[in-house]
Simulated assay, not measured.
Amino acid sequence: MSEQQQKKKAGVFDIRFVIGGLLGAYGIILILLGLFNATEEELARGDGLNINLWGGIGMLVVAIAFAAWARLRPVVVPADPT
């Protein structure tokens, strides 16, 4: 077999996909809370800034960065460790 055929990628088992997925899920939850559940009391605590919305957007951006990083620079696992 050629050297290229013996190498496999970690795929979805790459820890960057797991971290990106969790950050993305939490980010979407925070975005939804910021859009549909922002009360005047919560906005006053954040000095008029919708913290849930901006925090969720930040988490979603980081999740996309993790997914892009894992996709562009995959971990290569040797097929036969011996």
Rank of each mutant, 00 (worst) to 15 (best):
E3Q: 07
M1P: 11
L53A: 00
Q5F: 13
A10H: 08
E40I: 08
M1I: 11
V75T: 10
L53Y: 05
A10Y: 12
E3I: 12
G21A: 07
F66M: 02
A25M: 12
G56H: 02
G20L: 13
K9C: 10
G34Y: 09
P81W: 08
D47H: 11
E41N: 12
L23E: 04
A70R: 10
R73H: 07
D80I: 15
F66L: 08
E42M: 11
I28K: 02
P74K: 07
N50H: 00
A65S: 12
A79K: 08
L30Y: 09
R45I: 12
L49N: 14
L23R: 03
L43C: 13
L33R: 09
A44C: 07
F36P: 07
D80C: 10
V18R: 03
G24D: 00
V61H: 02
A79P: 00
R16P: 08
T82N: 07
G56N: 00
P74L: 06
A38V: 14
N37R: 11
I28E: 00
F17K: 02
G20C: 05
P78T: 01
G56F: 03
I19N: 02
A38M: 15
G24I: 11
F17T: 05
L32E: 08
G56E: 02
I19D: 02
G21E: 02
I15F: 15
I28Q: 02
G21D: 04
F36H: 07
T39C: 09
R16W: 06
A25F: 09
L49W: 11
L23I: 09
I29P: 06
K8E: 04
F17H: 02
N37L: 14
P74I: 09
G24R: 05
I28R: 00
I19K: 05
A38Y: 05
V77H: 03
V12E: 04
A67R: 05
L23D: 01
Q6H: 10
V61G: 01
Q5G: 08
L23Y: 09
F17V: 12
I51N: 03
V62C: 05
T39M: 06
V12D: 04
I19S: 02
G34E: 05
A79I: 11
V76N: 03
D80E: 05
Q6L: 15
W54P: 03
V62L: 08
P78G: 01
G11S: 11
A65D: 03
G11W: 12
G46R: 13
G21R: 04
E3A: 13
R71I: 13
V62R: 02
A38L: 15
V12Q: 09
S2L: 14
D14W: 06
A65F: 14
F17E: 04
M1F: 15
A44N: 06
I29K: 08
A25E: 02
G58R: 03
P81D: 03
F36T: 06
A79Y: 12
Y26K: 11
V75W: 10
L30P: 00
G56M: 05
L43F: 14
L53N: 05
G21C: 09
Q5C: 14
E41V: 14
Q4R: 15
Q5K: 15
W69L: 15
L35P: 11
L33F: 15
F66S: 05
R71S: 01
M59P: 00
A63I: 01
